[in-house]
Simulated assay, not measured.
Amino acid sequence: MSRVAETVAAIGIPLAWSNWALPALGLGIRGRTVANAGFATGFATVCHATPNWFSAKGFRYGIVAASLVATGYGVALTIPSVRRGLSEFEGRAPEVSPAEWIAVHIPISTVYSEEMIFRAALDPLLDNAFGSRAGSVLGALTFGLWHVHPARAAGDSVPASIAATAAGGVALGWLRRRTGSVTAPALLHLAINAGGALAPRIARLIGTPRT
């Protein structure tokens, strides 16, 4: 297979999985988590990915990035108007308990799966084929398109979801390139998603003072 064909396949296969094959299976959230993790592991293996999970540099960068995100959520929760807005998202929980969602499905189905597919496997392939600058753009765009079906299923704006997740993909990809490890982007990814699940619940518990 030529490099062009390999690159097209590496871009197309994850998009087909996320936006067509996985939804077509009709699995519940637990089944989707298992399927996503299995697909990610297989995809990364076929692509000869080297995630370098135990990188000390990856841990350092990741802890700093995650701490900044956690601080941002903490500051947001101190602002009544922002807290009121966050509390409105609490009803968007999946069909499992919040503890299971945050402790199992976010780390495995979202963080592990997406970091293995995109930062461990796809980004290095794109960098080798097109250079790091173009690879960064293509990888981030593919990451955005990965979220088309999830955005539709949640009733979110598809263009806005693509733009937001592609922007996130740029930051996550930069961390992988900077550290040579998926640990840093994984920790940032976990902080963003787990914080996004926790913050609305904390906002509801704190409440918003009447004006």
Rank of each mutant, 00 (worst) to 15 (best):
F118L: 12
V69T: 15
F89T: 13
R119I: 09
S67I: 00
P94N: 05
I79M: 07
G91C: 05
A56E: 08
V69H: 02
F54W: 12
A93C: 00
P107K: 05
A99V: 15
S87F: 03
F59C: 11
I108V: 15
P98E: 12
W53N: 09
S113H: 12
R60M: 10
S97G: 11
G74E: 00
Y61V: 10
A76W: 07
V96A: 03
S81C: 01
V111Y: 10
P80V: 04
S87I: 03
Y61T: 01
V111H: 10
A93M: 13
S97M: 04
T78M: 12
A93D: 10
G62M: 07
A76H: 07
F59W: 14
F59E: 02
F54P: 02
R60S: 09
A76S: 14
I63W: 12
L68C: 14
E95F: 00
I108T: 11
L68A: 05
V75P: 08
A70N: 01
R60N: 01
V75M: 09
W101N: 04
S55V: 09
A70Y: 02
E95K: 10
R83Q: 11
A66M: 05
R119Y: 14
E114C: 07
P94Q: 06
Y61C: 06
I117D: 08
F54R: 15
V104I: 15
F89G: 03
R83M: 10
V96F: 06
I63T: 14
S113F: 09
A70D: 02
F59A: 14
E88T: 13
P94V: 13
A56C: 01
G85W: 01
Y73A: 05
I102K: 01
G62E: 05
V104M: 10
I108Q: 08
T78D: 00
P80N: 03
A99C: 08
P107R: 12
E90Y: 01
E114S: 09
E95D: 15
I117W: 06
V111E: 04
V69S: 05
Y73T: 10
L86H: 02
G72V: 01
A103K: 04
I63A: 15
G58F: 03
G91D: 12
L86D: 06
S67V: 00
F59S: 06
A66P: 05
S67R: 04
R92S: 13
A76D: 01
M116V: 13
S81I: 00
P94W: 05
P80K: 04
P94I: 08
S55N: 13
S97F: 03
S113A: 14
R119K: 13
F89Y: 11
S67P: 03
M116A: 08
W101I: 00
I117E: 00
L86I: 01
I106Q: 00
G74N: 07
Y112Q: 03
L77D: 08
A65V: 06
I108K: 07
V104D: 07
I117V: 15
L86K: 07
P98H: 12
P80Q: 08
V75Y: 05
Y73G: 02
P80F: 02
G85Q: 12
E100H: 06
G58S: 08
G74L: 07
L86P: 04
I79V: 14
I63E: 00
S87M: 11
S87E: 15
I102H: 00
Y73M: 08
P98G: 07
S55T: 07
W101Y: 14
E100M: 09
A103Q: 10
Y112D: 06
R84F: 07
R60K: 13
I106E: 01
A65E: 02
F118I: 14
